[in-house]
């Protein structure tokens, strides 16, 4: 039953996602108000201007003044929406000043993450749907997905990122177009074979952030989740060191 509470966009984990959320709520509120006015007028007509009440229909069929008003007022409302929209857009698009860079590559049907610079440079790995989900999702599977913790929300190796760090993503794909999306970061970006897209984030709160591939990419499009584990910078540094020790910095591609 708690699924009924899945109603709105998450506020998210970054200043950017909060700005996007606020803009969303602002635009939504304006649309709801417009809706109430329009549907209110319609409801009034339906309730009171009905033949069964014995009314005689009016004959008017135009009014230049009214028509000018309802051309100009919506235009002004649009301007009011456009101003914060432009401000937010410019912030989202500004990928400068990054402190570290991660390359994301989409495959049918998993992700690859490569740390391109800084102390984590050289770490690279694939991130694949976790085994429990993978078993439960098969047609005719004996496992009820509801019994699986984080069904379709978990991977074998999540992307680990430091908080309070401006991170730039370079996104591409190896086969078809995918789209890398973590709702808590406030954006998604298509990963396109042969091209590199840019995006950025700066995570405020440590935690686990879960997303998905958002662009139809074939049979298992639903089964390539994105999981990001955000750690405070010192913990992240420890994770990097451990990672360098165990995997010798090389891609752990066992089983691929």
């Amino acid at each position: 039953m708690e699924g009924f509470r899945a109603l709105n966009m998450p506020r998210g984990a970054t200043a950017m996602s909060e700005a996007v959320y606020d803009l969303h709520m602002f635009v939504l509120t304006i649309c709801v108000v417009i809706g109430i006015v329009v549907f209110g007028a319609l409801a009034y007509s339906i309730a009171f201007h009905r033949k069964s009440r014995g009314v005689t229909p009016a004959r008017f069929s135009h009014s230049t003044a009214v028509e000018v008003v309802w051309t100009i007022v919506p235009f002004l409302i649009l301007v009011v929406m456009a101003v914060p929209a432009v401000r937010t857009l410019l912030a989202v698009e500004d990928t400068s000043g990054a402190e570290m860079t991660v390359k994301v590559t989409g495959y049918q049907w998993f992700w690859e993450y490569e740390y391109l610079d800084g102390e984590a440079e050289g770490i690279a790995f694939y991130s694949v749907l976790d085994e429990a989900s993978d078993r439960a999702r098969r047609l005719g599977s004996e496992t009820d997905p509801r019994e699986v913790e984080h069904y379709l929300r978990d991977v074998d190796q999540p992307l680990v990122l430091p908080t309070d760090t401006r991170i730039r993503f370079l996104l591409t794909a190896n086969d078809v177009i995918h789209s890398w999306w973590v709702p808590e970061f406030g954006w998604k970006k298509d990963t396109i074979p042969g091209f590199i897209n840019e995006a950025w984030t700066e995570i405020g709160e440590p935690g686990v952030y879960r997303g998905a591939c958002a662009e139809l990419c074939g049979r298992d499009h639903a089964f390539m989740p994105v999981v990001v584990v955000a750690k405070p910078p010192d913990e992240f540094r420890r994770w990097v060191a451990a990672r360098h020790d165990t995997a010798d910095g090389e891609t752990s591609v066992a089983g691929r």
């Binding site: 007028a41 319609l42 007509s45 339906i46 201007h49 009905r50 033949k51 009314v55 229909p57 009016a58």
Partner: peptide, 8 residues
Amino acid sequence: LWRGALTF
């Protein structure tokens, strides 16, 4: 619709 004589 405004000030018409509506039927449904």
